[in-house]
Structure formats: structure tokens, C-alpha cells
Design a protein around this nucleic acid. Structure first.
Lengths: 123, 123, 123, 123
DNA sequence: GTGGTCTAGACCACC
DNA sequence: GTGGTCTAGACCACG
């Protein structure tokens, strides 16, 4: 598992984990059917509580990204490639709508916003 | 004061207020030197706690957007037009850097992101 | 709150609570906009852990039945009467499909099943 | 053996097996005195653990549906036809009482429930 | 071995 | 006062 935690972040730990894992699944870096490591193992690796990891796993499950089987482990859900793209877009859009409102509120025109993105996307 | 609150939002109320007021100041809709209404008045109008309004005002002050004169009121800081634009940009940029990371993490290319913004900025 | 817990049941406590509250909301016994009692109070009344109550509340929220506002409390979501009926039907149907399979598997005909229900629904 | 397993089900695997075998016995599809295949064979066929099959067999035995003869195999108990019907009804009733409570709790009338069953029993 | 549930108790942000 | 997060540690069901 490739997870990094920033304790200084304002985001709760379980959400940081959720976002990183879900992004890896959506990008296809974690293959469908792959069995995630046991929550206790992840907890030990990250030096956090089992409960915190479990909460992240629960979020993944309730969003249909993984499938947990008691006694066997948690498996990445088999999604058709179309579904994968849909999931990615719906996650991106949900945030984008709010972000655009914010920048609009600050008085940025659409063009200014696009320019800034073109400028900073690389770094 | 022109403030609208969404209690169902995931953002704390004080932050919703802060963002709206600061945006109005930066856009120049609230003039420099203008005296903001007393927090008790705002609280009554919005039907929220005084404490919540106070916290929003504190945020404004700590970001240099208003000056509190004890016993007289809170006044919009006199900023030169250049400073105003800087403020706007620095606020936008701070958020933009994080947002771009997120969309990148989801696997969106720069072009896809720009397309989505062009598509949704109008609505 | 009108909640009764059977520790001897095979169902987890949080699920017993969830089912009872959701049923009351769906039946309209708990009015829309009603503020549920604080989880700590419920926990004390039922003599169970706060966490267990919270888990039930989380289920309610993720199913759109309540709306939690940090610092203020958890409120029954405003649902249009149509939505309420839909919710009821979808909850009933999800279970019914599985139940019918079971009785079919035992060899009960549709008529036998209906007869049994007509006979036992009253008691 | 004619058993199908849904690993994604919320029911434990051993219970899925138990329900299917018991239903087949009660329907008379598996004759009295018939010798069930060795658990190791079943486990291999279904690609599951022997322990899981064993637990299903134990359930069958504790419900009086099979008799284990150490070293010889597990045989379907000889039941008189009357007993078979009784068994079927008692299994159906035990579950039905709980199910009816649930639908009643959701506010479904007896008639609505019967209508839904008439509608969905076929599919 | 796995995950599921429940507990008690702490600290924080928000109102 | 409210709910949100995190902790450590226990016991159970399942495979």
C-alpha cells in the first residue's frame, strides 16, 4: 500500500487514506479483484489505530469501490471500464462545482482561472 | 450585509460568512473604510449565534481585511488597488494549488480539467 | 425516543436502533425537521456506548433520513411525501426479494405463502 | 450436490449451503437415506474451506436433517412424510414471524404486502 | 488468520 | 452544549 499521512493536515486521517486509495483504484493502479492488506497490517504500518483504517475502508465500501468479505479480506470491486470513468468524473465534478463557485466569488473570470491552471498544473 | 448561509453545507457557518464577506471586499463591493454592522445585528438577521459571527469577523481581521476599533466598530481596511488584486490572487492561488493536486490525483489531464471548467463555469 | 434493544438478538445493536428509528421516520411518527436527542443522551438512556449510537445515526444519515449539523444536533430530513413512500417501498422491496427466494426454496407456493401471511399478520 | 454460492452475499457461506441442502431435503429432491458426498469433495468442488462445509453439515445434523456415521458418511435422516411437511412449515414460520414484524414496522398493510408478493413471486 | 462489534475515555471544532 | 475524530483494547463470527 502506498499511503502517506499528513498529521498536520486539517483533513481527518481516515479521509486522507480514503482519498488516496480511491484515487489509486480509479486510476487503475490497484487492479480489480486485488485483495487489500488487512486493516490491522495497514494500521501497524501507518502507526495509527485499526479503527481509523477501518473507517477509511468503510468509506471505500459504501462508495462501491471495494467489497469486503468477512474472514477473507477486502477486494477491489470489479468495475467495467465505463463505470470507472464515470466514478472518476462524478468524484471530480462534485468537487469542481463547489470550487468554481469559490473562484467565481473571488471575482476570477473563467479565462483567468483557466490561465492559472495551465500555469500551475505542471508543478 | 448580503450573506446567505447553507446550514446543510459541510463548511462551518463562520467560514461561509468569512468567504462571502472577504469576496465582497476583494471585489470592491464593500468600500474601503466602510463600517461593518455590529455582530449582534448580523447574528439576529441570519438567526445564528453571535459567537459564530464573531469568529468570522476574527478571520477577516487576521487576514488584514478589516480593522476592529474597540467600542466603535469594524472597518474595512484601506488597501491600495494593487494590494487588493494581490490579496485576491493569493487567496485564489493557495486554494488552487491544493485543488489541482486533487484533480491530478484522480487522473484528470490538464486539458480535461480546463474543458470541464469551460463547460461548468457558466452554470 | 422510543427504542428498545434486545441484547439477545443476532442483529448488532446499532442496526436494531437504525431500523427502529428509520421505521418511525418513514411512518411519519417522527416529524420532518425534528431534532433527535443528542447521541450521548440516547447512549445513557439505553445504557450503551456513545459510539454505538453514533453508528446508528451515521446509517440514518448515509441513507438520507437525517441531516446532522455539527454543534446543533441531528435533524430529520425534509422529505416530500412522495419520497417518503419511495423510501418505504425501496426498503421493503430490498428485503422482500430475498425473503421470497427463501420461501420459494423451501417449496412454498405463492398461494401458501399468502395464506400464511393473511393468517399471521394480525398476531 | 447442487449448490451455488454468492460470496458477495451478506449471508455467511456455511449458511448459504445449509439453506440450500435443507431445502432440497425438505422438497424431497435428496432422498432419505442418501449419503451426502464427503465434505472434502464438496469443499474442492465449491473451492471453499473444508471448515466451512463442515459447519454447514453440523447445522444440518443439529436440525435433525442428517445423521453422521463416523467413518461411513453423512446420511439424510429417514423422516416420515408428515414430519417432512412439519419441518418445512416450522422453518418457514420461524422466519415468517420475524419478516412480518419488519414489514409491519415499515407501515405496510397486510394487503400491500400480499400484493407485492403476488407481484414478485414469479420473477 | 480475517473483519465486525462494542466498550471507555480523550481531545477537538463548532455553535 | 453539540457532533467529529482518534485511541487502546476486548470479544465474537467466519474461513
Amino acid at each position: 500500500m502506498n499511503i502517506s499521512i499528513l498529521p498536520s493536515s486539517d483533513k481527518p486521517i481516515y479521509q486522507q487514506i480514503y482519498e488516496q486509495i480511491s484515487a489509486q483504484i480509479i486510476r487503475g493502479e490497484i487492479a480489480q479483484g486485488f485483495c487489500l492488506p488487512p486493516i490491522r497490517t495497514v494500521a501497524k504500518e501507518l502507526r495509527i489505530s485499526v479503527i481509523t483504517v477501518k473507517k477509511a475502508w468503510e468509506e471505500l465500501e459504501s462508495n462501491g469501490l471495494i467489497n469486503t468479505m468477512v474472514g477473507k479480506g477486502c477486494f477491489v470491486s470489479p468495475l467495467q471500464s465505463g463505470e470507472l470513468g464515470d466514478k472518476r468524473n462524478s468524484m471530480a465534478l462534485r468537487k469542481l462545482m463547489k470550487d468554481i463557485e469559490y473562484y467565481k466569488g473571488l471575482g476570477l473570470t473563467c479565462q483567468e482561472l483557466v490561465d492559472l491552471i495551465n500555469q500551475y498544473y505542471r508543478s
